[in-house]
C-alpha cells in the first residue's frame, strides 16, 4: 500500500503540489489525472523518492521513504517498475540489453535464463524481434513498449505508468491498455497510471484522483466519476477527446 500524506512541493517559490493526500490500495489501479503541467509527474516522482517533499511524507508499506537510508530506499525501489513519459530507454544499449539490464544487475540468472526472460517480456509487448535494435531506430510507441517490457522484467509489485498512451496511435494505445489491465489482473500488481487520456483511464482504472491547482480536487471510483457533477472535473473530462457517454459507462463496467 502506498500512502501520500499532506505532501507539498514548490520549485523556486512556485507551488506545484499543495497538501496532497492519496492512498493506493494493494492490487488496485489508481489513475492520477489532470491537465498537463498540473504536477502529475512531480507527484509520481515523489512516490519513488526521486523528489523530496517540502512537507508531508510518502509511505510505502508503512515505511517513510524519505526517512530511510539511501541503500534502504534502493531496496524499496526494487519493488517498483516505472514507465517514464518518454520511455527513458538507455540509448547506448539495444532493446534486448535494455530489458536485460535490471536482470543483470539485480538477479543471479544465467545469460540463457536472462535471454528467455527478455524474450518473454518483449513478446508480451508484442515486439519479439526488436532485440537488436537501438532505441533511436524504434518509433516512439515501440520505445514505450520496450520500456514497459523493461519495467516489468523483475516482476515488480508496483508499476507506475507516466502517460503510457500519450502520443500513440489508437491501436498502440489499445495494446498498452490491454497490457496494463492484464498485468494488474494476472500478476496482481498495484498500478498507478498518470494520464490525461480519459479513454485509457476509463478502460483501465479502478479509481481516479484529479489534480487541479496543485491539489487533489476530486477522487473516487470510476463509477462515481460518471455520476459526479463537479464543475472542474467535468470540464476536464469534456475537454478530452473522449466524452463520457453511455457507451463508455457500459464499457468501463465490462472490465
Amino acid at each position: 500500500m502506498i500512502q501520500v500524506e499532506h505532501l507539498s512541493k514548490s520549485f523556486s517559490g512556485k507551488p506545484v503540489l499543495t497538501d496532497v493526500s492519496l492512498e493506493i490500495l494493494e492490487g488496485e489501479t489508481m489513475a492520477i489525472i489532470g491537465r498537463s503541467g498540473s504536477g502529475k509527474s512531480v507527484l509520481m516522482k515523489h512516490i519513488v523518492g526521486l523528489l523530496e517533499p517540502d512537507a508531508g511524507r510518502v509511505l510505502v508499506d508503512g515505511t517513510d521513504i524519505n526517512a530511510v537510508s539511501y541503500n534502504e530506499l534502493r531496496r524499496i525501489r526494487q519493488q517498483f517498475g516505472v514507465l517514464f513519459q518518454g520511455g527513458a530507454l538507455f540509448d547506448s544499449m539495444n532493446a534486448f540489453d535494455n530489458v536485460a539490464f535490471p536482470l543483470r544487475h539485480f538477479t543471479r540468472l544465467s545469460e540463457a535464463e536472462i535471454r528467455d526472460r527478455v524474450l518473454h517480456c518483449l513478446s508480451m509487448v508484442q515486439l519479439p524481434d526488436v532485440g537488436p535494435k537501438k532505441p533511436s531506430e524504434l518509433s516512439g510507441g515501440m520505445q514505450k513498449r520496450v520500456a514497459l517490457a523493461r519495467a516489468v522484467a523483475l516482476e515488480p509489485r508496483y508499476i507506475i505508468y507516466d502517460e503510457p498512451t500519450s502520443g500513440l496511435d489508437p491501436q498502440t494505445s489499445n495494446t498498452i491498455n490491454e497490457l496494463i489491465k492484464n498485468l494488474a489482473a494476472e500478476l496482481n500488481v498495484t498500478s498507478i497510471v498518470v494520464s490525461h487520456d480519459m479513454h485509457s483511464v476509463l478502460v483501465i482504472a479502478d479509481r481516479a484522483a484529479f489534480l487541479y491547482n496543485g491539489r487533489i480536487h476530486w477522487s473516487g471510483t470510476i463509477e462515481e466519476m460518471h455520476r459526479s457533477n463537479d464543475r472542474e472535473l467535468l470540464d476536464f473530462v469534456k475537454a478530452s477527446e473522449y466524452q463520457i457517454g453511455p457507451a463508455a459507462v457500459r464499457s468501463s463496467h465490462t472490465y
Binding site: Q78, F84, A88
Partner: peptide, 18 residues
C-alpha cells in the same frame, strides 16, 4: 546531460541502482 533530461538517470535510480 542527455541522460538526465530524457529521464534515463531517473530510470536507473528507480530500478534501485546507484
Amino acid at each position: 546531460g542527455t541522460m538526465r533530461v530524457t529521464e534515463q538517470i531517473d530510470a536507473l535510480e528507480v530500478m534501485g541502482l546507484n
